[in-house]
Design a protein around this nucleic acid. Sequence first.
DNA 1: AGCTCCATGTAAGTCGTTACATGATTCA
DNA 2: TGAATCATGTAACGACTTACATGGAGCT
Lengths: 212, 212
Amino acid sequence: MSLRHALLALLEAGPLTGYQLAKQFDRSVAFTWHARHSQIYTELRRLEHDGFVESAEAPRGGSARAVKRPYSLTRDGAGELERWVTEVEDAAPIRDPWHVKAQYLEFGSYENARRQFRAHREQYVILRDRYERHVEDLRNADTALIKRRLDKAEPSAHRAIVTFKVHAYANLIARARLEISWADEGLSLVDSMELADGASGDEEPVHRPSVQ
Amino acid sequence: MSLRHALLALLEAGPLTGYQLAKQFDRSVAFTWHARHSQIYTELRRLEHDGFVESAEAPRGGSARAVKRPYSLTRDGAGELERWVTEVEDAAPIRDPWHVKAQYLEFGSYENARRQFRAHREQYVILRDRYERHVEDLRNADTALIKRRLDKAEPSAHRAIVTFKVHAYANLIARARLEISWADEGLSLVDSMELADGASGDEEPVHRPSVQ
DNA sequence: AGCTCCATGTAAGTCGTTACATGATTCA
DNA sequence: TGAATCATGTAACGACTTACATGGAGCT
């Protein structure tokens, strides 16, 4: 149920159409919660049905034929947001395809294990850089979203609004760094195992999966 | 699609019934991939339909009425396992309810933020301890599963089998520690913000979510 | 006789993905 | 005139959850 609340949180900064919301989403919440545009549109309709947001039909462009639909938060939606933030969540069920595979790399060659660790490393280098850029923007209050939020909020709340977000991203950055150095350790681990085994560079599985 | 491959990997160590599989699962793969028993049963049927495992009906207990169904890996299943381990996965879509909330803690009171960080901390203390116990068992080859796997594999592969698993869990432990110290940082962050704001101990939201 | 564990599922529903479908506006 | 972007969705399917359903075996 995080999608709904993420959307409510975005709308708390002011009305947005589904499309704008989806784009804002990709630039902020998507770092912690991935969602497709199609899902955002359907969730918005559900939120409207539940009374947490309301929408209007607005003209788009000069001619009157094209239409867009700005959504805004209702009083109930604001209440739901407040309730949600007070609620303590259960630990999220862990579901990590890469770590499942990492447990069973012996079914492939050492060279394959290296490929896997390198790919993992590259993915997290990209994420780390993206997070770092974003946290920089947050610190400088330099995104459309954070500007809208600060504009709307009492100045006394500005520090908290920025600080909580920066702290959340600090965690993501630290996590990305962890994955990178862990992948590096994996790489040297593979090297040392291969050396100890006397094998070298071939593509034979370390332990070929077999029946029975 | 990690569930299927996790099940295949478990069966590579030898035949197991759905129930045994579910229990082994909870004690190993579940640390990286959560699944309910009901889902495991249905996935096993699907794997059988796809030809990756096969099952037999075996009597259970003395009387012949009760039945259990041991599954075993087929040649195709072993091949699929080998293919899977060679395949490089895309980065998993991020979906983390807690970090979504952590970005918006200003909608609650400072005291609430503390509650949230404390709950987060406690969850990861439990996980850390669980991982640490498990990695100890792995290192000592002291779980039913790892014993079966080592029994079956060539001695030359033993080191790799254990090392890859231990390394995977080392990552989970490091991650849990990260979350714990991050929660601690969060707690002192809240204290210092509250102090700077002159507020103290009440349950007023730092920035009450509002409409428009 | 009653409890715990072994054992195997089904059914309904939610959440999310993938692919499709359509068309207007804006700018070069 | 054509490409990029704005804009809003639907349909089918797959993965996962929750709740239900049943009953034997083994032990005290």
